[in-house]
Structures are given as structure tokens and as C-alpha cells.
Nucleic acid binder design. Sequence first.
DNA 1: TACAAAGCGGACCGGCGGTCCGTATCGTCC
DNA 2: GGACGATACGGACCGCCGGTCCGCTTTGTA
Lengths: 190, 190
Amino acid sequence: MPERKARADAARNREAVLAAADELFARSDSPRGVSMEQIAAAAGVGKGTLFRRFGDRDGLIRAVFAARSEAVRAAVESGPPPLGPGVPGRERVPALLDALLAFKLDNRHLALALEETSAGSPYAAEHYGWWHGVMCDALRDTAVPDAGFAAHALLAAVRADLVEQLAATEGMPPDEMRERLAAYAEKVVG
Amino acid sequence: MPERKARADAARNREAVLAAADELFARSDSPRGVSMEQIAAAAGVGKGTLFRRFGDRDGLIRAVFAARSEAVRAAVESGPPPLGPGVPGRERVPALLDALLAFKLDNRHLALALEETSAGSPYAAEHYGWWHGVMCDALRDTAVPDAGFAAHALLAAVRADLVEQLAATEGMPPDEMRERLAAYAEKVVG
DNA sequence: TACAAAGCGGACCGGCGGTCCGTATCGTCC
DNA sequence: GGACGATACGGACCGCCGGTCCGCTTTGTA
């Protein structure tokens, strides 16, 4: 393996930065209101350190997001039904969407940051490709024609900014949103 | 009316700016690559003029977008079937989505600019509220439960960055995209 | 303990959105 | 047509941000 043993202080700083960024994004109204300098200051490190370890703003956000979403990803890849593999598509598709929505509701600001500041588009993020793949698999197991497009369309229904709009501006309670999404998903796969 | 007669040079400059911005966005790969200074220069105008007339970057983009989308809007509000009013929802919903998709395909960069740089979120734009209203009306005329949510979900399927991803990165031809969207829409309202 | 490698941090840079105000132009009224 | 107030113009200017650079410190090793 190409991994060289990392220095202890480097690892400590990395964690400090991830934690600080996570918290700052969670507290802030808009991801754009959080600057790299603020994150560095909150983590007690220099700005140079941020950029050396994460490359650029995008890289940092992706790293924070990846750390946060590890659990959901594991649950989908090898968890119990109805989320895990080996479940009929008709049942799994709504479960997948619900899990993703629940995650975004719990991490609204972070998800917003990922989708908003990503270079190019949110679709370039590895995160999205993975979800699209999983969703395609599940959809191919249903009566839905064109799993590829349907996967894109269904995932679009849980875009972070839409979730934010429904939750914040329209004041929709989380549970209600999940119910409505579930009903919509049922309609599509049914 | 509170309108005061505008000066001739002001009107001329306004048009020049709209045209220049439209063109620059169309030519550029990413909306972020187009600066206000560039637009001002291309229009043969000072930067101050841009900000005085349009308030900020968002205002300018919204103005350009509004000018471009006038035609579609008119077609939906008082055009012939199946787009115009008085058409059964079952038939009108796919027609509306197709019209919106066709428009975004023709104005990819501009739509991208609107959705990307909008303060807050694309959902705050008046443009979106209008489409959501129209879509809700059409959906209430179908068997779809919860027209409000379904309208959001369906409109999300034609988000500018998704369209761009399908067209540019996945290389999907416009007509194929429209067919796939139509099939998806039929599935939802059917 | 000595030394190279790895990491650090903050001064620095270019560019952007947005502001400001002295100046030029327009429309009007005599 | 000339003169005057209102309106619009433009570009120097400001603060901020993402990203770079390099002299200095810390770490792990022999």
C-alpha cells in the first residue's frame, strides 16, 4: 500500500478541522457565509493547513460530508432490510429515498454546502454517483421503465435545497415530508 | 401609475446589458466564469450602471432570464392546447414539463446561472413559484395525491444542472431526454 | 542528541461583488 | 435655442475571499 505513516499532529489537526467545519456549517444559515479562514480559526490551525490537506474548499466539504454519511452508506451496503441489499425493488426504493431524506433532514446545512459549492455541479460528486447506482439497481427490479432516468428524477426530489425550502420556508415537519415522499415514491414504483 | 418616463440612453443601455449578459452566459462554460465587469465591458457600459439598474448579480440574471422566458410563459398562460389552460391535467402535466425541459435545453447556461447564483436558493425565485403554481393546478386535475409535493418532485426532474449533466456529461441527445421525461411523467400521472 | 522530512501558519496575491461621487447627458421649460 | 434641474454614467475604490508560498517548527528516527 502507498500509505506512509502519518504524523500524529497532522491526524489530530485533520480531525479538528473536520469537526470545526461540521459545526460551523451546522450553525450557519448559508454555506456561503462560512469562509475557509473561519474554519481554520475555529479549528485552531492556519489557513495553509486547510488547503494542504484538503486541496480546496470543495475537497474539505466533501471530506466532512463523507465522514458524516459513512453510517447511511454502510446501512445501504450491508445493513438489515428494507435498506440493505437483497430486498425487492418495490420495497427498497422507498426505503432508500426515505433514508436519504432523513439524512438530509439531519444534516441540512452540510448537504446544502455540498450541493451548493461543488465545482461544476452536485452531479460530479462521487456521493451522487454512488446513490444513483444503488437506486438504479433497486429500480431495475421494478416495473419502472428506464431505471437510469427514474433514478435521477427520484433523487432530484430530495435535493438539499428543496428539502431546505420545504422545511424552512414552507414549515413542513420532517415526518410529514417523509410521508409525502413515501407516497410519491410508491406512486412511481407502483 | 408610478412609472416615470425613462431616459432614452438608460433604456438603450438596459437592452445592451441584457443582450451582452445573455450572450456571455451562453458562451461561457460555467456561469461563475462570467463576472459583472465582463458583462459591463461587453455591453460598453460602466460597472456602476449594471448595479444601479439591476441591484446585484442576481437581479441582472433574473432580468435576463425573465426576458428570455417570456414566450414560454405566455404559451402556458394563454396558448393553444396542450400547453395552455383548459386542458385535462393528465395531458397537460407532461406537456408543461416538456415545454420547460425544451426551454432549459435551449437556454442551458442561462438556466444554470439562475439556479446556481440565486441568493438563498432557486426556490426563492419568482420564476419557480409560478411554475409550481401552474403545475399544482394541472396536477389537482389528476389522480395524483398531494399535488403540492408532486409538483416539486416533478419540477426537480428538470433542474438545470441535471439537464446539463445528462446533456453534457452523459451525452444524451435532447429528443431522447424529452422522451424519457415524458415516459416518467406519464408514469407519475397515470 | 542530531538531523532530515513532514507539517505548519499567516503574510500575501489576484480577482470579485458592490459602493460612491464627480461628471456628462438628457429632457424640459422659457 | 439656451439654460437649468434631474437623471444616469463610469471607473476608482473598498472589503473580502479562495488559494499560494516559503521561512520556521515539530516530529520521528537512528
